[in-house]
Amino acid sequence: MRERENEVLDRIRRGQLYTESEANFQDPLRRADLIFEYNSTRPGDAPRRRKLLERILGSVGARTVLLSPFHAGFGSNVHIGDDFFGNVNLTLVDDMEIRIGNGVMIAPSVTLTTTGHPIHPGLREDFRRFSKPVVLEDKVWIGSNVVVLPGVRIGYGSVIGAGSVVSRDVPPMTVAMGVPCRVVREITDVP
């Protein structure tokens, strides 16, 4: 059995297709009950919320604020740096790693997804899918209702405008927006 699991994990790492049935051995890594508990915890109970986040996420930095509710497929594949702020309704589809740097701010109703599905319906049997990591480098700011798709890296200090769908990498120190998301200018202003 272990050999089959390793073969599936290898395909997942390479961004190749795999099915729900093939990947179900990973279900113990899901943190659904803990996420439910976090979302039900009083906002003022910071120590309890912090302990839960440490159990839910793969790693979590200092001075992290994550407002409820948030959702994650696993939780254990998410790594957040220091000084993070995540507003309400953050959805993390973390079949693969999501890495969030230091000083990142995320507005309400943002989705970061590492997973997509084939376009052809014949290839979507048993919820067949592919996964690629998502990376938000330090000091990124993501506006409301943004969707970041599998395999995207958003560079240091960049700003993603509200309502954008980010389907390709965004270079550092730029403002990008739209559907599809495109760079509209560099950030050159000095505070």
Rank of each mutant, 00 (worst) to 15 (best):
68 S>K: 15
43 P>T: 01
147 V>F: 10
55 R>P: 07
82 D>Q: 02
152 V>F: 14
147 V>C: 13
46 A>Y: 10
59 S>P: 01
77 N>C: 12
177 M>I: 12
163 G>Q: 04
164 S>W: 09
54 E>A: 11
141 W>Q: 08
14 R>S: 07
116 G>W: 08
165 V>H: 09
104 V>A: 02
146 V>W: 11
41 T>I: 05
83 D>W: 10
147 V>H: 09
191 P>G: 07
111 T>C: 13
161 G>L: 14
89 N>R: 15
157 G>M: 06
27 D>T: 12
39 N>C: 05
55 R>S: 10
172 P>D: 04
172 P>V: 05
21 S>W: 03
32 A>L: 14
48 R>H: 04
115 T>C: 11
162 A>R: 03
74 F>K: 11
113 T>P: 10
23 A>D: 01
22 E>G: 04
176 A>V: 06
180 P>I: 08
164 S>N: 11
65 V>I: 09
79 H>N: 05
117 H>L: 09
73 G>D: 13
180 P>G: 07
33 D>W: 14
123 L>V: 00
71 H>T: 06
166 V>D: 07
13 R>C: 00
90 L>R: 03
155 G>D: 06
6 N>E: 12
53 L>A: 07
189 D>V: 09
6 N>M: 14
101 G>L: 01
45 D>L: 14
114 T>G: 06
157 G>K: 05
60 V>P: 05
96 M>Q: 13
86 G>P: 07
179 V>W: 08
105 M>G: 10
5 E>W: 15
184 V>P: 07
100 I>T: 01
151 G>K: 04
16 Q>A: 08
139 K>F: 11
130 F>T: 02
92 L>D: 04
190 V>Y: 13
175 V>T: 00
7 E>C: 08
92 L>E: 03
43 P>V: 02
173 M>F: 13
153 R>A: 05
189 D>I: 09
106 I>W: 09
54 E>P: 10
148 V>T: 02
190 V>N: 13
85 F>Y: 15
49 R>A: 05
27 D>C: 09
128 R>A: 15
142 I>K: 02
75 G>K: 01
109 S>C: 12
171 P>T: 01
186 E>P: 13
79 H>I: 00
33 D>Q: 15
46 A>H: 10
71 H>L: 14
33 D>T: 00
52 L>K: 11
180 P>W: 13
19 T>C: 06
114 T>M: 03
40 S>T: 00
5 E>N: 13
76 S>A: 06
147 V>A: 10
102 N>R: 15
